Amino acid sequence: MTSPALLITRDELLLDDLLRLAAAAGTTLDVAHDAAAALRSWGAASVVLVGADLAEAVASHRPARREHVHVVGPGPVRDGLFRSALAVGAADVVELPAADAWLVELLTDAADGVAHRARTVGVVGGSGGVGATTFACALALTAAAAEPAVLLDLDPLGPGVDRVVGLDAAPHPATGVRWDALVGSHGRLGSRSLRAALPVKDGLAVLTWAPGPPVALEAASVREVLSAARRGHDVVVVDLPRTVDDVSAEVVSRCDQVLLVAGTTVAGVASAGKVAAVLRGLAGDVGLVVRGAAASVPAEHVAGVLELPLVARVPTQRRLAEHVDLGLGPVHSRRSPLSRAARVALDVQRAGRWVA
């Protein structure tokens, strides 16, 4: 099996420390003792750790720019090391032993994610009240029944995915971190740490908003959360706001696929057209879910007007609001319209791009 991380150092003490941390992470290191030899594995390694002792030597070879490069050394950092770190394209300079726990998380995630990245689906409503959050919850709960899944709530003015999936149902509301606990945090977030910190419902990890006024999300925090979520799960579902700001626009661009949920009224289709125009400029693969009765505009006509592939149609589901209010969630029955539509969407999503 290919080693997930490359270490470049001649410092025996540093080598011993990092081998110990790798063992704690349940992985191994590919060790190179000179800069020239390291370049042979530079591009293939999932993570590159450059010892402070060889940072300048590695920089002199002008290695290709890549992600996940870190300069590592004992603290305190010596003068000039940051200049070498910049030259090798490192994301940061890591001091030991202060960063021991962080490095264990890094190496654990590297081992878990050598050939793994979650399928990420964004869900956004074409108009208000169309039930995009409900469909996102149905999609995530259906996925979680078969594989590790997480639901991220990026809509601060939505109903709250915790309420829709039934997390806050009496008598035992689930506990765990919300966005307010993560905004403003700095540094790398481990995938296992994120999973362990989130409330879980029927195998689905959920990140949503705390009660009260929503906090303002920071791009760096959301980016780190999304990255950790993708490393630690097989499916990530993101409930997106209709109004796209800088943060949600970046998330949309990082989604593998996006589903636009549209209604069947003329006004709803007109509103969905505006949202679709925004999504086309941000996402590479946008599909359509049509919810509601076909009395006004049939689903196929909605897809034609919006020029989007029709992934699933969801007829009106009786007693849905009652089931959600009782904490049963939107897919308590596998034969319900939402449950069937969610399975169809997931099957299509696994196959690759949305198809008409």
Rank of each mutant, 00 (worst) to 15 (best):
V48R: 01
H116W: 11
W42C: 00
L106E: 09
G80M: 11
A24R: 13
D16K: 15
V123K: 01
A85P: 07
H70E: 05
S127M: 09
D100I: 04
G89K: 07
H68T: 05
A57F: 06
G122T: 06
L49T: 01
W102H: 01
L107G: 01
G75A: 15
L13A: 10
A91D: 11
V93P: 12
L19E: 15
A110T: 03
L15M: 14
G43T: 08
H33T: 00
A87K: 10
V94E: 07
L49C: 10
A35G: 11
V71P: 14
V50W: 03
V104Q: 04
L106H: 09
P97V: 12
D79G: 08
L49S: 11
A90T: 01
L86N: 02
V104A: 05
V72F: 04
R40K: 10
R20P: 00
H70P: 01
D11C: 04
T9C: 09
E67G: 06
G113H: 10
G125E: 07
V77G: 05
D100H: 13
E105D: 15
R117L: 10
L19Y: 07
V94D: 07
A91K: 12
P76S: 06
D112T: 09
I8W: 07
L106V: 10
V124P: 14
V47A: 04
G126I: 06
A57C: 05
A44T: 15
A59K: 07
A90P: 07
V124N: 01
R62S: 15
L86F: 04
G113P: 08
R40I: 06
L107N: 06
D34V: 02
V121C: 13
V50F: 04
A90G: 08
V31F: 00
A5Y: 13
A22T: 04
R40Q: 01
L7I: 14
D30F: 12
A115W: 12
E95N: 13
D112H: 09
L39E: 05
G26C: 14
L13T: 08
V104R: 04
L21V: 00
L14G: 10
A91W: 15
G125M: 04
L14R: 03
A37V: 04
A57N: 15
V104H: 04
D109C: 04
L7G: 15
L21A: 02
D112E: 06
A44F: 11
R117G: 14
A5E: 12
E56A: 15
V114E: 14
A110G: 02
L19H: 06
D30N: 15
L103P: 03
L54P: 08
D30G: 02
A101S: 14
